[in-house]
Design a protein around this nucleic acid. Structure first.
Lengths: 337, 337
DNA sequence: CCGGTTTCCGGGACCGCTCCCAGGACCCTG
DNA sequence: CAGGGTCCTGGGAGCGGTCCCGGAAACCGG
């Protein structure tokens, strides 16, 4: 129970000496390189076991120019933003993949200028082998910082103003279209939408999906209000829309949180859902199952996004060209539409 | 916009050469060591600027035996567990402190055996300078793994079966006592509790706080049901308690999630809250403000916990003895009690 | 003017590992 | 049995820094 004497970890030299071979030979068996006799291998393996040897990560990193660390960089001006369960899901996905590799995850919440300059240092100082970037606002300085670093980069989601070389994104456009088509399919014609911030790609895509579906159905987009993906924002937008279009009969909210806000307002105002107004959300958060009525919504798999990002990045690090990926989304029918 | 030619980063030698001084001298000015002439300093600083030099983290780490990385290790058998907003808050706190330092955060979700052995490697191979550990189940193998590593360790929360040398924890005991005292204070006498898992320290402490407050008030604990901190678990426990003690007039739920479940059951069964049954939760999650009625609950600051853990760890790494910390909790009155 | 500090400087060992390379042992042909 | 492979092996030069140490230069009071 008392703390072990902080004995220095044994080095490769010590292993080699104990095994009666050269450091090179020891290194070879440890790295499973070829051209090692059975005898040498056995001797070294024994020495390793007896000494409890572990190759020093730092030394190895210096020699190989590989750290075995990948960074997940999250842009967040508002520290609360990270609290969104979205990121936790991404991290779970990322970790699941890394768990089967020798890579570890460095988490970087870069907000302030100070935080950004730390990031610049980290990337230019060979601190990581690659980065997964989630910087979804337009004009995010992180985009520049990271691209200058000359490291493999995979985007999670896409920025508005340019299309990264490699990214993984959910099919927001298709999902929004699905949602809208569903509303039209059940006979609604006066369908409005509550969008997320339109200066984000995801906000834009989901809005576009809605419009496209409406047009394709021969309808005109009936109304829209821009909100911020939050419950409160959704509620406010819903009020505004009811004000402007009292006869609306369906709403597509670009997030479950906003849909929940909308639902709250509709309930409060005595509009029955889905009879008077049908509602569809987006994301399929846990919350979607708990609203009243349960929310029909578009499912996206955020863990899968994390996994794919990671696999893509590891691939790039290993020198394989990979193609960007758009993950499918699909409709989950519950009570609200 | 095209990828920069992957020019190698300049090395210290190149800086030294350009500045016309030795590597030692260059190193000195970069590390702001004393005994450097103004001329040398200026020359080196100029060379650094011109070359865009950044000291290589890995090389420095090898030489100094310091990586500049701290690990946050989260034990989670269930990958979903990490999705709890709790961890996101911790991370936000940790990052906030780290942002003003040169340390970076390595996030380690260790579940499977594979994940654990990776962790062992990481810790014994000098991959990090210290660890913050959140392993709250009893008998968690991580406790052992980490203690054997001979690294500075700070616990977030406490394990059940032993008291770590350094930890940061919320005052769960005091908070639970406060909650219960409040219920008693508003005249309730048949107060039951819904606990979290009693094989966790937090579950135990909050249960103990309840009992102590009851006894101190001259009442006997009226009933309890063990749940798992989740909404569903809370609901089920509530039903069981109503079954066993139909005349209960108050319930202290050891988490907001469980309180929300309890509330749902009470509403469904037509018991009015707080008139018939008063309810107090614990955590003060966002959700507490959104239930019907809004939840009276015990507030704990999870970001603060992350911050304190980090400060404690950085202190230990710097060689300062620090004392463990218990963070205050307090009651937030809303409608449910 | 001269010993003794103090300030500044560069040489070089070291951190712990990888990997190239030259060379010895061994095997197999013709 | 000469000659050309393989298969192993150890030596040693790196990766890019830090830091100790001895010595040169500058400064000082007596």
């Amino acid at each position: 129970m008392t703390a072990e004497a902080p004995r220095r970890q044994p080095t490769l030299d010590e292993v080699a000496e104990r095994a009666g071979v050269s450091r090179s030979a020891a290194s070879r068996v440890i790295n499973k390189a070829p051209h090692v006799s059975r005898a040498t291998r056995a001797a070294v393996e024994r020495a390793v076991k007896e000494l409890g040897y572990r190759p020093n990560r730092t030394a190895r990193a210096l020699a190989t120019q590989r750290t075995g660390i990948v960074a997940l960089v999250v842009s967040h001006d508002d520290p609360e933003l990270f609290a969104d369960p979205f990121f936790a899901q991404v991290i779970v996905g990322v970790s699941a993949v890394l768990e089967d590799t020798d890579f570890h995850l460095l988490l970087c919440l870069a907000s302030s200028g100070r935080g950004r300059s730390r990031l610049v240092n980290l990337l230019h100082a060979g601190g990581v082998d690659g980065v997964m970037l989630m910087a979804l606002r337009d004009e995010d300085p992180l985009n520049d910082i990271v691209s200058k670093a000359g490291l493999p980069v995979v985007y999670g989601g896409r920025p508005v103003n340019f299309e990264p070389r490699w990214f993984v994104d959910s099919d927001n456009l298709g999902g929004a279209r699905l949602a809208t088509e569903h509303l039209v399919g059940i006979g609604r014609t006066r369908v409005v939408t509550i969008t997320g911030q339109l200066h984000t790609r995801v906000g834009e895509d989901r809005y576009r999906g809605y419009r496209e579906a409406m047009v394709m159905a021969g309808l005109t987009p009936y109304g829209m209000a821009e909100a911020d993906f939050t419950e409160a924002g959704g509620a406010e937008a819903m009020r505004a829309l009811l004000d402007r279009h009292p006869d609306l009969d369906a709403v597509f909210a670009a997030s479950d949180n906003m849909a929940a806000g909308a639902l709250r307002v509709l309930n409060d105002l005595g509009r029955s859902v889905p009879a008077d107004v049908a509602v569809v959300g987006f994301d399929d958060l846990r919350l979607a199952g708990l609203t009243d009525p349960p929310l029909t919504t578009v499912h996206q798999s955020i863990q899968a996004l994390g996994k794919e990002m990671t696999q893509a990045l590891l691939g790039l690090i290993a020198g394989q060209e990979r193609t960007s990926i758009i993950l499918p989304t699909w409709l989950v029918r519950r009570g609200s539409a």
